[in-house]
Computed example of a mutant assay.
Amino acid sequence: MRELLLLDGDAEEAGWQERALCAQTDPEAFFPEKGGSTREAKKVCLTCEVRGDCLEYALMNDERFGIWGGLSERERRKLKKRAV
């Protein structure tokens, strides 16, 4: 029973990803080459209804690459430092 509950929780957690606007756009925009522009990805994030869930996921899972919740890796690192 406990395993079933964990699986259900994982499914609920991942539900926000299905509603994310980035799932409907070019994934390469969210993982630009070093020094590449993040402008397009961040523009998509601005109007995304699950932006907060996305950022929370990235912070909790220590995502080191890409744009998550409208923030770059550097911006997420700064945010984490301020929270400590």
Rank of each mutant, 00 (worst) to 15 (best):
G70C: 08
F65Y: 15
T25M: 07
L46D: 15
T47D: 11
G66F: 00
K80I: 02
E49A: 12
K81S: 08
V50H: 06
G35S: 05
P27C: 06
T38N: 06
R76A: 03
D26A: 06
C22L: 07
A29E: 14
A23P: 03
T38D: 11
K42D: 07
F30H: 07
E73H: 13
D26E: 13
L59E: 05
R64I: 03
L55V: 09
C45R: 14
G52T: 14
R64W: 00
F31D: 09
P32N: 10
R39Y: 09
S72G: 14
T47W: 00
A29S: 03
D53M: 02
A58F: 07
M60H: 02
R51S: 09
V44T: 10
R64L: 05
S72A: 12
L71M: 15
L46P: 04
G66D: 03
R77Q: 13
G35Y: 10
A58W: 10
Q24M: 05
E28V: 01
R64M: 00
A58N: 07
L46T: 12
C54H: 03
L79E: 10
R51D: 09
K78H: 14
F31S: 08
E73T: 13
G66Q: 07
S72I: 08
V44W: 06
E49K: 12
L71A: 10
C54A: 04
K81C: 02
N61D: 01
A29V: 02
V50K: 04
C45Y: 05
D53L: 02
T38E: 14
L71I: 06
L55M: 13
G66I: 00
P27L: 08
E33A: 15
W68D: 00
R74E: 14
T25P: 03
L79D: 12
F31A: 08
V50T: 05
R64N: 00
R82H: 05
A41W: 11
L46K: 15
E33Q: 15
C48S: 02
P32F: 06
